[in-house]
Design a protein around this nucleic acid. Structure first.
Lengths: 221, 221
DNA sequence: AAGAGATTTGACCAAACGGTAAAAATGTTA
DNA sequence: TAACATTTTTACCGTTTGGTCAAATCTCTT
């Protein structure tokens, strides 16, 4: 479920939030997540969001002053959740275990929050008009920090030499692919719409890819 | 949904194409690629496409009967290009070389055709309303065929055991990531807008990841 | 139960959008 | 160059969309 509502989903109410206010904001954000993630920002209409939230459009606009504000509220609420798996990487752990666990967390995140993943993907594809500065500041800072840890592991000979940042890119892309491109994955595998069974094979593949030896495996049975 | 019209961008002209017709259709498709890839299907407007093609909107609609037809024409034209790198994988080659060359082709394709990649990504993210059957038929068939080749390599001990289809997913996602998420990549790396220099590091990373040993590399200098 | 404040609704609006019709302009060819 | 076909433009239309407003209703407190 979406964590979303951080501190400031600033509505026109400076005072503390009512019970109804909190309920409705959550209902709206949930509905908006559904609609935005399916059709992108421009494909989503206030009418459809309102309808999905079982609410009239003017009522919806009583809680969020416009479409963009809903979108931004959704994105900002998402960012912390999105970065949580990376934050957990510890410098004190064993590289193999740490990276393996990170990949599993990321993949699990894709399976559990596919709509959030697609919302994020849509935003980036559109050029990150709303979270551009977040990428340049918070995300960059976190990546820099974790890249240092990875670099230390490389220097210790515990990890093959590579650009740590690009290693993260590879992890992000492979794991998020299963949420963002799920339609393609299912069609290629010949699976029905709701089927998410491919995640087990995916996990195995990513383990082999990132933790095992992919090529030149002479020790194959 | 709407099926891809076959080869021809069927306009209201059953006869052979005029010089002007060919020029203008190309101009329109180029402009549409720019606009669609930046804003997605719903974010793109006929006015902006027409403006980008330096043409009036009714004139544009003289060549394509509606917005959807432009989008479909663009996608269909793209599919062959998109699959070309995969088609080239040969069963007769050395696995390491074949896969390495495939990855390089794919990455090069991302660098050279980022707009096409984003167009494709947008379509898949939206649930593949226009190319759903293509994914289920042509793409699936090609993947099945190439997966067999990979499986043979695995059985011969030339490639670590893994699900061949998911290996392809991993290659697709990592390579296309650099086109689709280029904004994020640049922001995290602290590069200016036009800079594509990260592709060299990317190529190295993917080589290490797919062809080398990433973890447990005790033979590091 | 009354009053204040919060919430919901229906009616509406201006702009943007996809698309059309027909005339005007241009190109092509006999 | 005249006749015909193709291309372009001007003016327009109906719908959808994001958003407003004031009145009506509901909720909570005292």
């Amino acid at each position: 479920m979406a964590q979303i509502s951080t501190a400031s989903t600033s509505v026109k109410h400076p005072r503390s939030k009512t019970r109804i206010q909190q309920e409705n904001e959550e209902r709206i954000l949930l509905a908006a997540l559904e609609v935005f993630s399916q059709n992108g920002f421009h494909g989503a209409t206030l009418d459809r969001i309102a309808s999905a939230a079982d609410m009239s459009k003017p009522n919806l606009l009583y809680y969020f002053k416009n479409k963009e504000e809903i979108h931004i509220a959704l994105l900002t609420g998402l960012l912390d959740v999105w970065l949580a798996p990376l934050r957990e990487i510890s410098a004190d752990g064993e590289p193999t275990l740490e990276i393996g666990a990170y990949i599993r967390r990321k993949l699990e995140s894709s399976r559990e929050f596919p709509r959030e993943s697609r919302l994020f993907a849509n935003e980036i594809l559109a050029g990150a008009p709303h979270i551009g500065t977040f990428l340049q500041t918070e995300l960059k800072q976190l990546v820099d920090e974790k890249a240092k840890i990875l670099q230390r592991w490389i220097d210790n000979g515990q990890l093959a030499p590579c650009d740590p940042r690009h290693l993260l890119f590879a992890i992000w892309s492979t794991t998020q692919h299963y949420a963002d491109f799920s339609v393609q994955v299912r069609h290629v595998l010949g699976l029905p719409p709701g089927d998410k069974s491919y995640y087990t094979d995916a996990a195995e593949m990513l383990d082999t890819l990132f933790l095992g030896r992919l090529m030149g495996a002479d020790d194959v049975p």
